[in-house]
Each structure stands twice: as C-alpha cells, then as structure tokens.
Design a protein around this nucleic acid. Sequence first.
DNA 1: CTGAAAGCGCTAACAT
DNA 2: ATGTTAGCGCTTTCAG
Lengths: 351, 351
Amino acid sequence: MAATLHDVARVAGVSIKTVSNVINDYPHVRPETKERVLAAIAELGYRPNLSARNLRSGRTGMISLIIPNLRNPYFAELADDVMNAASARGLSVLIEQVGGDRESELSVLRGSRRQAVDGILYSVLALGQEDAAVLDEIPLPMVLLGERIFNSSRDHVTMRNEDGLRAATEHLLAIGCRRIIALGSHPGEVIGSAGLRLDGYLQALDAAGVPVDERLIVHADRWHRVDGAAAMRSILAAGTEFDGIVAFNDSLALGAMRIMQEAGLRIPQDVAVIGFDDLDETRYSVPTLSTIEPGRPQIAETAVDMLLARIEERASAESSPAEPREVLTDFRLVQRESTTRAAGAPGSSGL
Amino acid sequence: MAATLHDVARVAGVSIKTVSNVINDYPHVRPETKERVLAAIAELGYRPNLSARNLRSGRTGMISLIIPNLRNPYFAELADDVMNAASARGLSVLIEQVGGDRESELSVLRGSRRQAVDGILYSVLALGQEDAAVLDEIPLPMVLLGERIFNSSRDHVTMRNEDGLRAATEHLLAIGCRRIIALGSHPGEVIGSAGLRLDGYLQALDAAGVPVDERLIVHADRWHRVDGAAAMRSILAAGTEFDGIVAFNDSLALGAMRIMQEAGLRIPQDVAVIGFDDLDETRYSVPTLSTIEPGRPQIAETAVDMLLARIEERASAESSPAEPREVLTDFRLVQRESTTRAAGAPGSSGL
DNA sequence: CTGAAAGCGCTAACAT
DNA sequence: ATGTTAGCGCTTTCAG
C-alpha cells in the first residue's frame, strides 16, 4: 500500500497538519521541521492521493477538451496548443472525442466524466444556435470555441473568419486572379465558419468590383481532404473556368490541389490557391500552401485563461458571475508557394 | 451545490445504501424501490461524485497515455485508436505529452498525475534499455509500446519492424529496383525502430543477392517530414544514384518525395517509394504512398486489454503477478501509386 | 431487502 | 509553529 500523510507524519515525528503544510508550501513551518518532513517523504516515496485531495478541495486540476477527432490535424494541433497552455497553468487536459452528431455531443457534454473535471473547453461542431440554452444547463464552467454558437451565456473564443477570408480573397485578387473559387460553402448557413467565411469572400469581391459568379461558390459539406478532392473533380468535370481558389480550410485546399495536379494544372501559374488554418502540413505540401494563420495558440491560451477565471470565480462563491466575454483572435496571412507567381508574370488564365 | 447520495435518499425515502445499490446495479433491490430511487435521481439531476468514488474504491477509471507529441500524425492516430479501445472498455484516457528528452520522460513517468490514473500506456521514445530498471520502480500497472525497451518486467506491445521493412524492401526489389535507399537509419542503434528496420532492409537485400552499398543507407536522427526533406537534399547533392527508397516511416517518405519532385524526379517511374505506418495522409499525397500498415488499432486494443488485466490483477491482490507478456502485431503491405509502375514498363533508371 | 455506521486520505478551521 | 479534529461523498461490512 502507498504511504499516506499519517505514515509521513509518524516517520517525521510531527502531525499530519505539519506535513500538509509542507506539501502545500504554507509559510510558518520551521526550516528544520520542514527538512525532517521532506526527508520522511523521500524515504517513504510518498505522493499525495489526488482523489482524496480532490474530494476535499472540490477541484481536480483537470479540464476536458471536447473535440471531434484527433485525426483531424486541425484539432490535433489545437489539442497540443491547449495542453501546453494548460500545463503552464498547472492543469491537466482530458481529451474527449465526440462523434460529430448532435446526440453524441450532447451526451458527452452531460456525460459521466463531468464530475471529474473542473471545467470544459468545448469546440462546438454539431450543436447550433438553437442549442444555446442546453449549454446553460451544464453545471460546470465552460468556454466555447468555434463559430457555431453566439450569444450564449458562456465565454466564447473565436477567430476572425470574415476578415481572414476577406484578406485571403484580396490576396488572390492582388496577384491577378479574377475567377476565384470559394471552396467549402454550406448553402443556407449564416453563422458557422462556412457562412462567415463565404461572407468574407463576397465582401472582397464586392470591394474590388468583381462580379460574383454562383458557379464559383462550391459546396462541401465536410472539410476533409477527400472532400476537397471530390469537389475539385466535379468542378473540372463541369468545365468551369477559374484561376484561383480560396479554400475554407487547408485540408480542402490540399485535396483540391492533388486533383488539379493530376489534371495537369500548375499551381500557382495556372491556379493560385490559399487555405485557412495554417496546419503544420502546409509548410511541406507540394507546392507549399499559402494560408490564414488564425491565431490558434492565442485561442488556446485565451480559452484556458478564461476557463480558469470561471473556475476560480465559482470557487470563491462570489456574488453574481461576470458577464460572458467574447474574444476574437488576431489572424495573419502567410504567403507560400501556392500564391507566389514570378514577378512580372501574371496568371496565365488571361482573364 | 450538486446533489449527493443523501439528498437522493431523502427524496426517495430510503437509505443511502439503497441508493448506492441502485446506482451500482446490485441485485436484491425491489423493483418499486428502484423505481422510486431512479425518479429521485432524475428529479435532482444527481451524478455520483467521482472523486469520492475514486477515493473509496481506489480506482479512477482513467489511464494515461504517454506520447511525445500529438502534432506528429502517427501519435495522433495512435491516441485516437487508444481512446476508442479505452472507451469501449469504460475507461477515459489522459494524454500526457513528453518533451522527447530523457529527463522529461522520467519526470512524467514519476510525475504528479500518477495518482490520478489506474495505469499507464507508455510509448517509449527517449528512454532506452539501460532504463528498464527505472520502469520497475513505478508503482503502477504499465504497458510499454514501441521498440526501445525489451525484457523489462512490463508487458510490451510492439510491431514487426524487421519483417515489415523486409517486406517493403522485397516489394521494391520485385518491381525492379536495385539501388534502394534505406532512409532513416540511426548509426550504431541495434534495438529501437531504426536498428530493427535497417535489419529488415539488409535481410531483404541479402536474400535477393543485391550487394549493400553504404552510401544508400541514409541517416536521419528524427523522423519528421522536414528530416526526410533535408536528407533527400544531401542525397541529391552527393549525386548518389538510386531508383527506390524504403523510408523508415511515412513522414520521412513524404518529405523526401517533395524534394525529389522539386528536382524533377518522377515517382514511381524514376524512383519508387515506400514508407511505414500507414498514416491517413498516405492516401492523399501526390502520389499516394505505398506503406506498411503496422497494425495500430490492434496495438491499441491489445495494449488496453493488457493494462486492464494488470489493473484487475492488482485489485484482486492475488498471489504473484503473471509473467510479463510480449505481443507482436500483424502488419500488411499496402501498395499505392508510389510503387505502382505501369505493367511492362520497368524503372527508367536502367540499372 | 434495507439501514446504520465506519472510514478511504486529505484540507482547513480551530485550538494550543 | 504545530496539533486536533471534522468532514468531503462514496462504498461496504455488518445488522437487522
């Protein structure tokens, strides 16, 4: 059996309170006593029992991160960022994957592990605005990530979807593209990443006086590589002319690039491509992919900080909780090969 | 404050023992009593406090998975597989990332979260055979993954490194390659993935009577995409001739392919390439990458099962623990475009 | 079939 | 500066 506080106290010849004081770095412990306690701890290989500590203190030092799937590089990178931010603040992260359907998200939110964490970082995917009320019922501090739900009573960290996509589109316009495909739209969606990003695209065209061609707005329900590839196949089959692509995320862009290359299109000479997310992979694809870096580390840090603040607010049982906050992170356009045309050599599409 | 057992008992008009019986699905509860208790639980929105349960039962229902980094797709996919296996068995997974250096691995192993989990799945990276003894000191059930440590007192799940790489090399030989680069060696390493995989390569050449050329054994300390790219740059700079590459993992292969394509080499016509790991990405690269599928889901399931067995063995406090087991998973060669040459058209290198 | 009560290991208020 | 002690919410003998 593992050593307990009492064992340490006995070996050190003090009371458990003193041992507890030493462990928790309380002041008012005579150096020599501390010494003796530390020696006893080392001798016994004592480690505090976290279950007991949690039970007593009402805190676990763990937060859960609810995401769709780690195989999706965006979420793997987000998870890494969150774990780094959390561990810098002394927290552990319990990652919970959800199936992507509404039921599974709800059941995880309400789920059994709830009692094992101090708070939840929830990257909303399947729920929508109409579920905002459901979130209020979860009796745990929570911070929302993503763009599916606004105006709930929860803190929310999100990226500048419209601005980012507008900048991406402007970048393509600036290097000479005129027939730019928007890849990844969700017809009818207004809020949500797809709706917001489409808006940014339209704003950019509008500002440049370039007419909108509905055939250039390409639908893609899911945003994985395979979806980008499939979409590009139908675009080519339809014979639509285009000289640039703003993909609503990097995976779509990478999938589309693969199909274009098979079809003999040169990137960026024939078609310039830009994505969104700044996945690690965009630095290594052929060609390397220009993209919008949406401030993911900042999202992670901000979200963890906000959650921690909520947890502490709750612990100190103060009057009324602070108003929900909404934070938008800074984005940055990263230009790589897929949009870098040789100087003085405009796109070859001749439009 | 959240409802407790006592609250439920009061509302249902029974004792806490009865409530506990209902929750834990014990027999011997009269149906109508059970009904009443269930109603009270629903009414109060009662959820058992896991810290208390853990404290009492000595189990947490969590295992930790220690891996280097989620941004590495191999480990992201492994983590996904492990989480699926664990959740099918009612366990949660706490992912802990380690820096990759020896000290950081040791400190996580001994680390503070130790008391919060029932067991550890440890994907060994920085420790080596000489640390086998250290592992015995960790007073927690543990299963090792990977090929850095053999013959410790711990259960161990590993893949068929030699056989897999031998099969990969034989595949290249079969399609006509004669000057095959082995990419990713660690000079001097005997056990460890690099040592074992190099062995498989040498075995295949030997069996085919193809002489070993030291210049074709290319070193790469780390196995990320960028390392594969860097290695390929020096190979090209050195002017070494080659017509095939067996990379010791997929990332190396993908990195090398990028550089070859920039240099105008065609894959598979000029150079055939095969990797190892079967990352999701290999299905979408240009060209798609042939690879060895090392049985990762099987690794995950087996490892979780073994760990669970150890946890239960410990709980039942039986005589002596079972002998450590060593499991090798089945691999499979997956042929994709990077090694598929048109029938009747052998490699163009002319060797 | 159900109730009473002990105690898991820890923290923190209170006492000295 | 250190000791005493009462629970945190649950599981689990042991009685009824």
